[in-house]
Design a protein around this nucleic acid. Structure first.
Lengths: 344, 344
DNA sequence: AATTAGCACTCTTAACTTGAGAGTGCTAAC
DNA sequence: GTTAGCACTCTCAAGTTAAGAGTGCTAATT
C-alpha cells in the first residue's frame, strides 16, 4: 500500500521533470492527470506534498510546477532512464571523426565540437597539465641568443612547446648533448618523478662534463617550473542560447562571460579531474553564481586506465539528462579508444 | 563660400556620427544645433541633404538621424581624428604583457585577450598557415608502430606538432638519420621552397642510403600535405554584448554562432592577411549576413618585414573608431616587437 | 479513507488605449 | 541664407482589460 503511494509520487515527480524538460514551461496537474489516468485533483494533492518537501515549486500562485534542484537531483539519481544512443547518432559521430585528425589538439577540439552538436549544449573537453603523464622525448631548439624553444612529448603523443630564457648563450653542439642527456636520463618517467630524481641523477652522472650537467639542470628546472598548462576546448556555446530560458540578454552575457573565463572554468573542471565515471552538477552545486540554472555533466577519458582528462557539456539545468548523459559517456569512451590507438 | 558650406556639412556629419557612437540613439537636430551655434532648423536642412545623399537616415519619421554605412565609411576615411593612446592605456597593456609568456600560443591568446579588454570589442588574432615562414627545425618522434609525431619549428619559434601515419615501422635509429637529413637539407627554406626543391635534393643526395631517402621523401610529403592549419584566437565576445544594440537574444545568438564558426571566421580574415596597414570593414562590407551591423578592424603584424598575421577586433558598427583603430595598430606594433625579440 | 467534481480565486500574458515627448518638415518672417 | 513657429508623426512607457491557465479548498462520491 504505502509503497504503491511512494511509487506514484515518484512517477509524478518524474512526469513533472520530463514535461518541464521538453516544454520549458511550468507543468500543470491536468497534463499529468491525463498521462497517469488519475484526476487532476488527485495529482494536485500529491504535488502539494512534493512541493512541501522541496522537490518542486511554483513560480507564482496559479502556475504549474517546476522542479527544484533537489527535484532534479532525485530525478537524476533515482528516476531517469538513460536512453541508448540511436544508430543514427552513432553514425553521425563516427562520420564527424572520420576527417583525419592531425594532432591531439585537433582531436580534442573536434570532440568538443561534436559533443555540442549532438547534445545541443556547450561542449567541453579538458586536458589537464601533463605533470602526471610520462615523459617521452624532449627537444631543445635554439631560437635566439638566450631563448630556447622546448618541445616536450609526453606519452600518447601529447606534445607541448614553450620558450624558456637562459642566462647565457648555449651553442648548438652543447644543446644537442644536453638534449641527449635529458632524453637518456628521464625516459618514461613522470614529470613528478623527474622532479624528485633529477638532482640525484645529475650528481651521480659521470659521462657528461660539469658544464653540460649544470646547464641541463637549469633547463630542466625551467621546464618543471613553467608547469605546462591545462588546456580547455569549448565549443557550441551558441547552441544553448536558443533555449527559451535565455531570452534575457543579461543572462546570456553572464554565461558567455563565464565560458570565456578560462581560469574560472579550469578551476571548476579541474576540481574533479580524476573522478571516476560520470559527474553531474546541477545548478548551484557548481558553486558558480553565473551558472545558477545551468548543469554540468562530465566523464573522464583515459589512457592506460589513468583518467587524464574530462569531456562533457554545460547546458541549462532543464536539459535532457536521459539523452545527454549517455552521449557524454559514449564520447568519453570513444576518445579513450582513439587515444589507445595512438598509444605507445 | 561653397567650401565653407561643404565643411559645415562634414562637421555636421561628424557630429552625428560622434553623438550616435556614444549615445547609441538617433541624433536630433537640437543636440547638434547647440554644439555648432546654429539653429536646429538650419541643421535640419543640412541633415535632409545628407539623408538624400545616403550618409544618414531616420529609423522612422520624427526620430533623429543615424549614420548609414556610407556615412560611417566617409567618417572613417575622411573625418575621424585618431586618438593617441593614453599613458594609462599603455601602462595597462604593458602590465598585462608582463606575465611571462611560455609560448607563441600564449602570446597570441594573451594579445586577443588584451585587445578585447582595452577596446570593449571581441579581440581577434590570426596566425595563418606557416607555409610561407622559414623552416628551422624538424623532429620526428615515434609514438607507435606506424605513427610518428612530427614537431616542426618555423622561424621565430612558431612550433606545430602533428601526427602522421607511415606504412611500416621505422626504427628509431633510422628515424634519427631521417631527421638529420631533413634538417640538413632544408634549413631556412620556406615550406613552399622545400616543396619545390625537395625532389631534386633527394635525387642528388649521396650521403644517405636509398632507404633513408625514400622514407624521408614519404615523411616530408606527408608534412607538406597536412598543410599546417591556420590558428585563430578570439576573446572577449561577451564585451560586445553589453551594447544596447544587442538586447535582442536572436541577434546575440547569430553573432556568437558566427564567432564560434572557425571556418567562416578564417575565410573572412584570411581574405586580406597580407594587406598592409589597418583594414576597416564596416557592416555589410564584410559580406557576412550575421555581421550586418558589426565592423571589423584589423592590422597586420610582422616578422622581418613580412606580415605573418593579423590582429584586430570585431565590434558593433557603432564603435569608437577614433579610439579602437589606434589601439589595434598599437597592439600590432607591440606584437611585432615581441616577435622580433624571439627572432633568430 | 481515498478520489474526484466543482468552483472561487489568483496570477500572467497579450492586446489595446492613451498621453507625453521627441523630432521632423514646411512655411513665413527676419 | 537663417530662423521661429507650428502642425504633424511616430515611439515609448504606463495603464487597462479580458482571456486563460492553474491552483486550493470543499463537498460529494466511491
Amino acid at each position: 500500500m504505502k509503497e504503491d503511494i511512494a511509487r506514484r509520487r515518484e512517477a509524478i515527480l518524474e512526469a513533472v521533470v520530463d514535461c518541464y524538460i521538453d516544454s520549458a514551461r511550468p507543468v500543470g496537474s491536468r497534463v499529468i492527470a491525463r498521462k497517469m489516468g488519475l484526476s487532476s485533483a488527485t495529482i494536485r494533492n500529491v504535488m502539494q506534498d512534493l512541493e512541501e518537501e522541496g522537490f518542486i515549486m511554483q513560480p507564482h500562485t496559479s502556475a504549474g510546477r517546476v522542479p527544484t534542484e533537489k527535484g532534479y537531483r532525485y530525478y537524476v539519481d533515482s528516476l531517469m532512464r538513460l536512453r541508448r544512443l540511436t544508430e543514427a547518432q552513432k553514425r553521425n559521430i563516427d562520420s564527424e571523426y572520420a576527417f583525419k585528425m592531425k594532432s591531439l589538439e585537433d582531436l580534442l577540439a573536434k570532440t568538443s565540437h561534436i559533443i555540442s552538436m549532438v547534445t545541443g549544449c556547450a561542449g567541453v573537453v579538458l586536458l589537464p597539465k601533463t605533470e602526471y603523464s610520462h615523459f617521452r622525448h624532449i627537444e631543445l631548439v635554439s631560437i635566439s641568443r638566450n631563448k630556447i624553444l622546448v618541445l616536450l612529448v609526453a606519452g600518447s603523443g601529447i606534445a607541448k612547446d614553450f620558450i624558456i630564457d637562459t642566462d647565457y648563450y648555449i651553442d648548438s653542439d652543447t644543446l644537442d648533448r644536453i638534449t641527449k642527456f635529458l632524453n637518456d636520463s628521464s625516459y618514461d618517467m613522470t614529470l613528478d618523478e623527474i622532479k624528485d630524481h633529477l638532482e640525484a641523477r645529475l650528481r651521480a652522472e659521470r659521462d657528461y662534463s660539469y658544464k653540460i650537467i649544470e646547464q641541463a639542470r637549469n633547463i630542466m628546472s625551467s621546464v618543471l617550473m613553467s608547469h605546462i598548462e591545462s588546456k580547455l576546448y569549448i565549443d557550441g556555446a551558441s547552441h544553448i542560447l536558443v533555449q527559451p530560458e535565455f531570452s534575457d540578454a543579461r543572462r546570456i552575457k553572464a554565461i558567455i562571460e563565464f565560458l570565456e573565463d578560462k581560469e574560472r572554468m579550469l578551476e571548476l573542471l579541474l576540481g574533479d579531474v580524476r573522478e571516476i565515471g560520470t559527474r553531474i552538477l546541477i545548478g548551484s552545486e557548481s558553486r558558480v553564481r553565473s551558472l545558477n540554472d545551468m548543469s554540468i555533466i562530465t566523464s573522464g577519458y583515459r589512457i592506460k586506465d589513468n583518467i587524464i582528462g574530462r569531456v562533457g557539456v554545460i547546458g541549462p539545468t532543464r536539459m535532457s539528462y536521459e539523452k545527454v548523459v549517455p552521449i557524454v559517456n559514449f564520447l568519453a569512451d570513444t576518445l579513450t579508444g582513439m587515444l589507445r590507438e595512438l598509444e605507445v
